[in-house]
């Protein structure tokens, strides 16, 4: 019996409430060498099934190292990590099924496209994960491409390199979604896109989260998009979890956020000012429209403020 088998399975994992449980996770790059650098320090957090969690932090804060642990691209050095019902601290992990269930979208995923046709590229993962039936593969690929808003019949035989930048990214995303993962981990999925492209990707991710119950973990630098989309935000600072709270609560700590070199979302700043002056803004007011409605409501009942 190996040591890791003795690990106590956290209750949340055992009863299926948690998608990810990290318990004092540590990671050091180049250990025992003069270049050694500790990237994660006692990271402890839980992501519930069906949640949309954003991970933010300054470049080099350890957030990318953390998310690469989630499908065992980086193996656990020290500490506990459960993803779905996989114990990633164990010596042996069934990587094939794990990676099929935990989809990972890297920064600029369009740079990993390689196949002759869009269809082949989207089927690449399916083939690797053992979907042997060709028809089944194509059906899953079609579902995924349609999910990301592409016209399947129009693009399936096109070369992925002939698509526009935004389309390439959506095809790359479809390549991950085709596996119907239960957890979707994304490293800055909107980087480099224009506002419309950003909105498309974010609304797609939100809808996958809401309608398909897929747990989403998204790394992002854009505080406005994080603020409006995530249920919870985890802030990494120098390898540690500095904050783990809801968007509204997090951005009330304006000074701390600024000291970490992060930005405060416009609407959070606005609401904070109103609250400072004694007005009450509901906690779920995050988008421009919601805030606008809240202000109108305040105007209706100014006397009570």
């Amino acid at each position: 019996m190996s040591k890791s088998d003795k690990v106590v399975i956290p209750q949340a994992v055992a009863d299926g409430a948690a998608a990810i449980v990290a318990d004092k996770l540590n990671f050091t790059y180049n250990p025992k060498s003069p270049f050694s650098k500790q990237a994660l320090k006692d990271v402890t957090l839980t992501v519930n099934r069906g949640e949309f969690v954003a991970i933010v932090g300054h470049t080099g804060s350890g957030k990318t190292t953390f998310v690469q642990h989630l499908n065992a691209l980086i193996r656990v050095q020290n500490g506990g990590l459960f993803v779905l019902d996989y114990n990633l601290s164990a010596k042996k992990v069934d990587l094939k099924t794990l990676r099929g269930r935990v989809g990972m979208v890297f920064q600029y995923p369009e740079y990993q496209l390689f196949a002759d046709t869009v269809l082949d590229d989207v089927c690449f993962g399916l083939k690797n994960f053992g979907v042997t039936d060709k028809e089944k593969r194509e059906q899953l690929a079609q579902n995924a491409l349609e999910l990301v808003g592409m016209d399947f019949d129009k693009v399936k035989n096109k070369s992925p390199f002939d698509l526009s930048g935004g389309e390439k990214r959506r095809v790359a995303l479809a390549g991950v979604l085709a596996m119907e993962p239960q957890i979707l981990v994304m490293d800055e999925p909107t980087a480099g896109l224009d506002p419309r492209g950003k909105r498309e990707i974010l609304s797609l991710v939100s809808s996958i989260n809401r309608h398909k119950g897929v747990t989403v973990v998204m790394v992002s630098h854009d505080m406005n998009e994080v603020y409006e989309n995530a249920d919870r935000i985890i802030v990494f600072r120098e390898g540690e979890v500095a904050y783990d709270t809801t968007p509204r609560q997090l951005f009330k700590k304006e000074d701390e956020i600024i000291s970490m070199n992060l930005e405060i979302p416009h609407m959070a700043k606005f609401c904070n000012e109103l609250e400072r002056q004694g007005y009450v803004i509901p906690d779920d007011c995050k988008t421009v429209e919601q805030v606008f409605d809240a202000v109108l409501a305040l105007k209706g009942g100014v006397g009570n403020a």
Binding site: P109, Y111, N128
Partner: peptide, 15 residues
């Protein structure tokens, strides 16, 4: 870049 592509393809089940 090579490192990143290898990781990305591994995440898609490449062996």
């Amino acid at each position: 870049e090579t490192d990143r592509i290898i990781r990305a393809q591994k995440a898609r089940g490449a062996n």
